[in-house]
Amino acid sequence: MSDLTQRFIERIQGATAPLCIRGGGSKDWYGNAPRGEVLETRGHAGIISHEPSELVITARCGTPLAEIEAALAEKGQCLPFEPPRFSAESTIGGVVAAGLSGPRRASAGALRDYLLGVKLLDGRGHELVFGGQVMKNVAGYDVARLMAGSLGTLGLLLEVSLKVMPLPAACATLQLPMPQAEALERLKRWAGQPLPIVASCWQDGVLTLRLSGARAAVEAAKEKVGAGDTAPESFWDDLRDQRLPFFAAETLWRLSLPPTTPPLDLPGEQLIEWRGGLRWLKSDAPAETIRAAAASAGGHATLWRAPDELKQRVGAFAPLPAPLMMLHKNLKAVFDPRGIFNPGRLYADL
């Protein structure tokens, strides 16, 4: 455990040029290109408290995700939103700043749903605390959740508190061969039923389902979804951390869509998660075509991995309507009036 708060404050207050807040660097490639002088947060590490019966863990930003997951597992708990681990260096501050969630997101909720509180340094170097360590807290605006996915553009996260949950009693993984359209149809039908389907993945003619919950519920559900081959549970770790061969692509799009969207008419190979709500696309189609298809379905497309030139040209994230961008700029000015935190990482104007 070490406390580098004072050093961070001096760096922020003395900054005359942009700072690039960086934890383990496992997501340097995510979003638009990082720029500015690197401010390392890894040294500010350590779990501050974990009380299993309170279902909360509080840790400093530089604490490795692996350390947190190990501490939770020891007490039979987990982070149900399954943040991706792109390398062993991944820190909890980076996990919150990126706001990404894994395979169980459609059933368990997203990172932001589990974020209870943050301590941060704003662009003036002021230490601010929002939210807390309790499940329910409506005092003041929910600035803590606003930090989830803000990519470090609003402040330097010093500490985060997350709600944790017990590990499921039982899990099973089934694989059923079927074409995309049928998989989407079935997932749609199952969504409205009280079934313990916690994750789904369709790729290359195979639908993989993860069932989890009480032993009895998992057994009963196996019959309902239909006979299939069982597959190892490690499949979900490979999916979560994007180690499946599918993800080795030079250009990869992430389309977040209403889950009931029918199969997309876009060229390229797809991998579908979140019962249809998340569609990974390997495609060389023009960015405008892909973004327009996502928008017309009621979602948005992120340029996930791409050559620098393409990312610079079209931006990592779907453009925002003008009034929404105005609110973003106003909020950026509230927390980082000098514009020193991770400028351009999320949008050129922030």
């Binding site: 409506v138 606003l146 996915g149 979602g299 948005h300 929404l324 609110l327």
Partner: peptide
């Protein structure tokens, strides 16, 4: 303005969390 989405997430800041409450 519309904030949030029929999809599981939206680009930009989580204004939905800020608005609720």
């Amino acid at each position: 303005i519309e904030i949030g989405s029929d999809a599981f997430d939206s680009p930009g800041y989580d204004l939905l969390a800020l608005l609720v409450g």
